[in-house]
């Protein structure tokens, strides 16, 4: 398949160049065809891959969001599985290149396909899938639709292996996971990017995996509650992290500065939409001009801004 060839040439090369760690025999045995995802070490025992700011396609194999893993003394916790089983397997390849400890937890930060279409790759690892308590409900009402609607952009080959794998361990508020002398705090947020956002904080290094509560470069998408997101930015901002692995954007990113751009975008969007609502401008017209002055600051602005404006309008007109 062409993607394997491409990955061999492009990614393995980059991988060797930056990390200098060759395949281990165990890795090759466990995940035969998966060339490791080119992850970057962001702190002691913390690795992450920076996805491309793009829509999910056949060509990029759904590798558009940031995924990562944390190695404890006993086991590994994976944060998001990526946008295809191919990516999930490549992530497993990257893990196996660093450690032979078992993957105990696969943590899904929220419901979106770019973060969990790779879940099925972890089936044989025996990992427990962990998510926000609202995640199973969200996947029940969207899973089938996601599997259908991504077929056009991703192609039949990639979609064939993808399954909706809901979490079995649910987080309701805040809960610690221990992966061996390493405490991870998982926090379930109120509706913001989605109604099932989960963040992961590694106490040992102070790295915060924000999931899509933090977008950099890639325009944030609002699929939960704009007001909820704005309201929780201060709480998020208050987390004493050294730096962040955002859901999209540079790995790692300075904290809490990583939140500044999205906060500004939300303020502009909310104020434009509020003004339109007050003036009685119908939704169809209002969403065309809202937040246009933010256009130059973001990638994928045209793909997502109008949709954000629609969501914001439907929410803010109840204020």
């Amino acid at each position: 398949m062409s993607h394997a060839t491409r990955r061999n040439i492009l990614k393995t090369g980059i991988f060797f160049a930056c990390c200098g760690v060759p395949h281990t025999r165990a890795a090759l045995a466990w995940s035969m065809s998966a060339d490791p995802l080119p992850v970057k070490q962001v702190a002691d025992g913390v690795f992450a891959f920076a996805g491309a700011p793009a829509m999910m396609t056949r060509q990029n194999e759904g590798e558009i969001c940031n995924v990562g893993f944390i190695i404890g003394d006993d086991s590994v916790a994976v944060i998001d599985s990526g946008g295809s089983v191919v990516e999930g397997k490549a992530l497993i390849g990257a893990i196996r290149a660093k450690t032979d400890r078992p993957v105990r937890y696969l943590i899904n930060t929220h419901m979106h396909p770019d973060h969990l279409f790779g879940n099925a790759a972890f089936k044989s690892s025996g990992a427990t899938v962990v998510g926000h308590h609202n995640l199973p409900r969200a996947l029940e009402s969207r899973g089938t639709y996601y599997l259908q609607s991504y077929r056009e952009a991703m192609g039949d080959d990639l979609m064939a292996d993808i399954r909706i794998v809901p979490p079995t361990k649910l987080i309701t508020d805040e809960e610690d996971l221990d992966i061996g002398n390493r405490k991870l705090t998982l926090r379930a947020w109120k509706a913001a990017h989605t109604d099932n956002d989960l963040s992961v904080f590694d106490h040992k290094t102070g790295v915060l995996f924000t999931g899509d509560l933090c977008f950099i470069d890639h325009l944030p998408t609002i699929d939960g509650s704009l007001l909820g997101w704005i309201a929780q930015l201060d709480i998020l901002n208050g987390i004493k992290a050294k730096f962040a692995v955002p859901g999209h954007g540079a790995v790692p990113s300075p904290w809490p500065q990583a939140l500044e751009a999205e906060r500004r975008y939300f303020d502009v969007l909310a104020s434009d939409i509020r003004r339109a609502i007050a003036d009685g401008v119908p939704m169809t017209n209002a969403v065309k001009s809202a937040a246009q002055r933010e256009r130059a600051n973001w990638k994928l602005f045209d793909e997502y801004n109008q949709r954000n404006a629609i969501a914001a309008f439907a929410e803010l007109e109840w204020e």
Partner: peptide, 27 residues
């Protein structure tokens, strides 16, 4: 034409929708 990206024809904030069931507003 159908939407792109991760947009789905489902509720964004299920808890909110149920908490205020039946509330009306007229402008």
């Amino acid at each position: 034409k159908a939407s792109g990206g991760c947009s789905a024809p489902a509720m964004k904030n299920s808890d909110e929708a149920l908490a205020n069931l039946g509330k009306m507003k007229l402008r």
